[in-house]
Amino acid sequence: MSTTTASTFTAPANAGAAQDSLALLGRVLLALLFIPAGFAKLTGFAGTAGYIASVGLPLPQLGAAIAIVVELGLGVLLLVGFKTRLSAVVIALFTVAAAIFFHNYWALPAEKAYVNQLMFFKNIAIAGGLFAIAAFGAGRFSIDKK
Score class of each variant (00 low, 15 high):
T4G: 14
T5C: 00
A6M: 15
T8Y: 14
T8C: 09
T8S: 12
F9Q: 11
T10N: 15
P12Q: 11
A13G: 12
G16W: 11
A17C: 00
A17Q: 13
L22I: 11
L22W: 11
L24M: 10
L25R: 04
R27S: 07
R27Q: 06
V28D: 04
L29T: 11
L30R: 03
L30C: 01
L30K: 05
A31M: 07
A31P: 15
F34I: 10
I35G: 11
P36H: 06
A37V: 00
A37G: 05
A37K: 05
G38W: 07
G38F: 05
F39P: 07
F39R: 11
A40Q: 14
K41C: 00
L42H: 08
L42F: 15
L42E: 09
L42Q: 09
L42W: 10
F45W: 07
A46L: 12
A46K: 13
A46E: 15
T48I: 01
A49K: 04
G50P: 08
G50D: 11
Y51G: 08
S54W: 05
V55D: 04
V55T: 08
V55C: 10
L57T: 05
L57N: 07
P58I: 07
L59D: 00
L59W: 12
L59M: 15
Q61K: 14
Q61P: 12
G63Y: 10
A64D: 03
A64N: 01
A67W: 06
A67T: 10
I68G: 00
E71M: 02
L72F: 12
L72A: 13
V76K: 04
V76T: 06
L78R: 02
L78V: 03
L78A: 04
V80Y: 14
G81S: 10
K83H: 14
K83F: 15
T84Y: 05
L86P: 00
L86A: 13
S87K: 01
A88F: 08
A92Y: 02
L93G: 04
L93S: 02
F94V: 06
F94N: 02
F94M: 05
T95H: 01
V96W: 00
A98R: 03
A99Y: 02
F101L: 09
F102G: 04
F102D: 03
F102W: 03
H103D: 03
N104L: 01
N104R: 03
E111T: 08
A113E: 02
Y114E: 15
Y114H: 14
Y114M: 15
V115S: 09
N116M: 03
L118R: 04
M119R: 01
M119V: 02
N123R: 01
I126W: 00
A127G: 05
G129P: 13
G129D: 03
L130P: 02
L130D: 01
A132P: 08
A132T: 12
A132H: 07
A138Q: 05
A138G: 11
A138R: 05
G139H: 09
R140E: 12
R140F: 10
F141M: 13
F141C: 12
I143F: 15
D144N: 06
D144G: 09
D144C: 08
K145S: 15
